[in-house]
Design a protein around this nucleic acid. Sequence first.
DNA 1: CTGAAAGCGCTTACAG
DNA 2: CTGAAAGCGCTTACAG
Lengths: 327, 327
Amino acid sequence: MAVSMSDVARHAGVSQRTVSNVVNNYVHVSPATRARVQASLDALGYRPNTAARRLRTGRTGTVTLAVPSFRERYFADLAEAVVGAARDRGTTVLVETTGGHRDTELALLRGGGDVLTDGVIMSAVALGRDDQRGAHPVVLIGDREPGSTIDHVGIKNREAAQAAVTHLLETGRRRILLLGANHGPKRSYQLRRQGYQAALKKHGTALDPDLLVACDWTTTAAAATITRTFEHLRPDGIFAMNDSAALGVLQALHRGGVDVPKDVSVVGFDDIVESSLSTPTLSTVAPLLGDIAASALDLLAEQVDEDHVPQHRMAGYELRIRESSTR
Amino acid sequence: MAVSMSDVARHAGVSQRTVSNVVNNYVHVSPATRARVQASLDALGYRPNTAARRLRTGRTGTVTLAVPSFRERYFADLAEAVVGAARDRGTTVLVETTGGHRDTELALLRGGGDVLTDGVIMSAVALGRDDQRGAHPVVLIGDREPGSTIDHVGIKNREAAQAAVTHLLETGRRRILLLGANHGPKRSYQLRRQGYQAALKKHGTALDPDLLVACDWTTTAAAATITRTFEHLRPDGIFAMNDSAALGVLQALHRGGVDVPKDVSVVGFDDIVESSLSTPTLSTVAPLLGDIAASALDLLAEQVDEDHVPQHRMAGYELRIRESSTR
DNA sequence: CTGAAAGCGCTTACAG
DNA sequence: CTGAAAGCGCTTACAG
């Protein structure tokens, strides 16, 4: 049987209250008492019972992270960031995978069958604007339904895309293909395209509609699309909506004998691990996952306030320039 | 405030005991009572308090999964499998990342600072044979220190490697390079090499020491090594110790104008997601992660028995033949 | 600075 | 088939 506080109290000849004070580092304990209690704690190998503490305080010290699947690289990286940020504040992370199913997402949004954690951080893909959360704190990550009243952490899609395209323009590229238009997560697509257009406009370069190329945001789709497109089109820069697609671009160009970055510069979005390992290494926009994780945990904590107003926070990003756009 | 059982009991005009019976689906409740209680449960929106249940029963319904990092694809896939298998048995999964640090692994092995879960499933990389676990259930996954007395789930490294090499031999390959010899996780390396040798022996093919090529188990190292090796060696088959390396092989051969699978067949190990997306798609040995997860959860559950004997279980694997070895 | 005691929300012998 | 009650291990007003 595990050692409880009352065992320790008996051993040290003090009350349970004093043991609790020592364990929780309260100030008002005399050094002598503290030392004695600490010795008993060590001798008996006391370890706090989290369930009891939770029952008593109502707080669990645990948050739930829900993502569609860890098999998607981006979500695995996000999980890594959330676990790290949570550890910094003494919080543990419990994980759920939703498979992107609306039912599962809704259940988590409304509270699941179980009160186990202090709140849910979810990358939801199937929820709509009008879905309401339950009584427990919820923070959504990623694409946001405009008009939703649930706390949310996103990234500066427009600014980031603009920065990427501006970088291409500043390195002398003029005919920049936007790969992934009309596809992918709806909202991100719109914002990244706006960023693309804003960069061109600011630079005084005309928009050529032929350079807006529809494509799934996957490696294979991107490779096929680029191979087909290069039969009749010769851009000198490509901004892909995400890295998976950008890596497909690199494959296709390599196969087609087009030199990157000599003939064409390529920039992606996400900074997945493969992007720093590809040949050439891929320039990309890196959302700061640590920022996202920290903001989500902050918002969760703030939701315990009665007068918390639902809000929308933006995490930072970095443009990471690598070989694929360096001439 | 949340709705408790006593609230429901009052609402339904029964004792708390009866509410508990209904919630837990005990048999001896009259249909009429059950219906009435259920109605109150629904009306009040009752949800069980996990902390209280845990405190009372001593079981948490949660296991901890500890891996070095989710950024490594294999561990992300493993997490996906564990979360899925756990859900099947009504268990939730709490995650920790160890960064492969011995301190962190030891802390988890010995029980951490906190009694939060029913046990720990860990992919340990820095523990030694003599490290002892604490009082709580622990199952190690992956490479095993021979002689360790901690429960463990592994894969049939030798048999799986033998199957992969036999496949190459049966498709007419004779000069099969083993890539990753003398590197990588110690134990896996030995066993996989034994499997390689067993396959050759059984087939009556002589072992050529030149074909045992040392190399880190990474994409970049493999690509470099293969490019160098092909300057003076011409194998017709390559068995790489893992998929990351095998993908590097594909890159290097493609760049070097060597056709896969026409000139050289390639087989990897792990079946990471990229392996089914590469060009050509990569033949590989797939450890059955669902098996690993289920066995680990079983062993954890069995450890509550007083007379549990530490054991070592083997999860299954599948040889997945794709384009890189199909002529 | 420390003690005695209540109570968080459950489950489960003990009765009937 | 159901009730009254104890107790899991904590934290924290209430006293002193």
